[in-house]
């Protein structure tokens, strides 16, 4: 009996030591590395930081959205003056009269919402047609014809000009271009 108790005590001490040593293992001192999430394009453009809105005095706007809207608005100007593309956007220039929402305002909101959602913004929604339906004359009677790769290239080039007018850094322009490239298959429907 005495020998049994001694053996039990020895094993308990041995087991306890093993338990303590494993709990105090050096590995526990190593910090657990949680990978930092990669910022979205929207966050790189300023994200949800609120800044004064130059278009609406006294109001604020998310910095990311302001950056995108500035690029979109500049791009609209470039497209309106580009004979290779402005045929798709002539409604922009339709005079609507004082007090009515202009084609420019409507397209600006539409495209800004689209880019905001596409670049990772979470406080906006895009309620327009999807890119396939929007560029298919069968589902969008306002689409005068099918867009081809040349049209898409020109559109991206005009967006780049719009972004450069707003001093967007080249690396972010590249990300915007990459985002647009993901839409090429949906937009280009000409054989």
């Amino acid at each position: 009996m005495k020998k049994f108790l001694q053996a039990a005590l020895f094993l308990s001490i041995l087991g306890g030591s093993a338990f303590i040593s494993s709990s105090c293992n050096d590995d526990d001192d190593k910090p657990v590395v949680i990978p930092t999430p990669t910022p979205t394009l929207y966050q790189k453009l300023g994200g949800t930081t609120m800044v004064p809105d130059p278009a609406n005095p006294g109001m604020t706007i998310e910095k990311g959205r302001l950056g995108l809207r500035s690029v979109v608005d500049s791009t609209i100007f470039v497209i309106a003056g580009d004979p290779e593309l402005n045929g798709f956007f002539t409604v922009l220039l339709t005079e609507v009269g004082a007090g009515n929402t202009t084609g420019f305002a409507a397209l600006s909101k539409n495209l800004t919402d689209f880019f905001a959602v596409g670049s990772g913004a979470t406080n906006f929604t895009y309620t327009g047609k999807n890119m396939v339906a929007a560029h298919n004359p069968a589902s969008n009677s306002r689409m005068g014809g099918l867009a081809d790769n040349g049209d898409m290239d020109k559109f991206i080039a005009d967006v780049v000009v719009g972004a450069q007018k707003n001093n967007v850094p080249n690396n972010l322009i590249g990300e915007v271009g990459a985002l647009l490239e993901t839409l090429r298959e949906d937009v280009v429907q000409a054989p």
């Binding site: 278009a55 220039l93 202009t102 305002a105």
Partner: peptide, 13 residues
Amino acid sequence: SIKYDNASLQLAR
């Protein structure tokens, strides 16, 4: 609920 920025900005050519 639909807010248009620059709602009265008319583009011309």
